[in-house]
């Protein structure tokens, strides 16, 4: 009995030692030198592996950061300036900063605003729907509502609103990784500069049809009337393809265009309720209130 136990222990130990020796030499022979800074940089990254930087994962991004001379084209949108500063410190370089951004849905074609004109009965993804036709409403530019964007969001920052049928961005969770921008077959998402208190003013429409047609299919469509363009004091609004576009970098959130829009296609979020005498008051004391509304418009 004892002999069996001794035999067993001896055999197993022998095997273990042999394997360890073999493994040691193999590891020595096939050792690959890696810049230790890659690990350090990777450590500093958010480890979300979301691909928002344009690389396959955080490791790839870290490798590229270490290998390249500058941060040209290298930015982690999820970590933002803080993480990029840390990365820059590890590599002993000057950090680059970017304004934080947030994803915004440029469509307000809710079930109410944009009545259905047909019933879609196929696999329920936006990509497949859009390969079949323009969509189940009169607007072929608007949201299809199957939630391809929700599917790709790694940060739980998007969910479908069952009442409106549109996805809603949770600003507190959105990291501007850009996955939804790529996923949307209608290109309805835009990464816009984050303003104070997550305030936003934007044209929630991408309908390029002529005004009359657009308005017929959706009551809050931008009809390209240029009224906002004319009223904007900061030249933040441009007109193209029967659409107005507000440049978030130039917009000073004065809200003049919002009241001007005849179809309510321009949306304002996060502002205090308007007083009777609207624009001037709001513009004069924009920061007095901490009333941070959530985005359920």
């Amino acid at each position: 009995m004892l002999l069996v136990i001794v035999d067993t222990i001896a055999t197993l130990s022998g095997l273990g030692i042999t394997a360890a020796v073999v493994l040691y030499f193999v590891a020595q022979k096939f050792k690959v030198y890696e810049d230790p800074r890659i690990d350090e940089v990777e450590e500093a990254l958010p480890a979300a592996n979301c691909g928002g930087c344009g690389f396959a994962g955080c490791r790839n991004f870290a490798e590229s950061c270490v290998k390249s001379e500058s941060f040209e084209g290298l930015y982690c949108p999820v970590g933002g300036n803080e993480v990029m500063t840390n990365v820059a410190r590890i590599l002993g370089r000057e950090a680059i900063t970017q304004d934080p951004q947030v994803a915004v849905l440029l469509c307000n074609g809710t079930c109410e605003n944009r009545p259905k004109t047909s019933h879609y009965d196929g696999a329920s993804t936006c990509a497949i729907t859009s390969s079949v036709y323009g969509g189940d409403t009169g607007c072929q530019f608007g949201c299809l509502g199957h939630g391809d964007c929700v599917e790709v969001c790694d940060f739980d920052a998007l969910h479908m609103d069952p009442v409106t049928g549109l996805p809603v961005v949770d600003d507190s969770k959105c990291t501007a990784c850009g996955a939804c921008v790529k996923a949307c077959p209608k290109n309805l998402f835009e990464l816009r500069k984050r303003a104070k208190n997550d305030r936003k003013i934007y044209v929630a429409c991408k309908n390029q049809d002529k005004g009359g047609i657009a308005k017929k299919s959706c009551s809050v469509a931008c009809i390209g009337c240029s009224k906002c363009f004319k009223v904007c004091p900061f030249e933040a609004i441009t007109m193209a393809d029967n659409l107005a576009y507000i440049d978030a970098d130039k917009c000073r959130l004065c809200r003049k265009c919002v009241t001007e829009c005849p179809t309510n296609a321009i949306i304002e979020i996060g502002f205090p309720p308007r007083k009777i005498k609207t624009e001037e008051t709001a513009q004069a004391n924009p920061d007095k209130t901490e009333n941070k509304s959530d985005n359920n418009y």
Partner: peptide, 8 residues
């Protein structure tokens, strides 16, 4: 009523 659209 609405007509149905689906892929083949």
């Amino acid at each position: 009523k609405l007509i149905t659209v689906s892929p083949s």
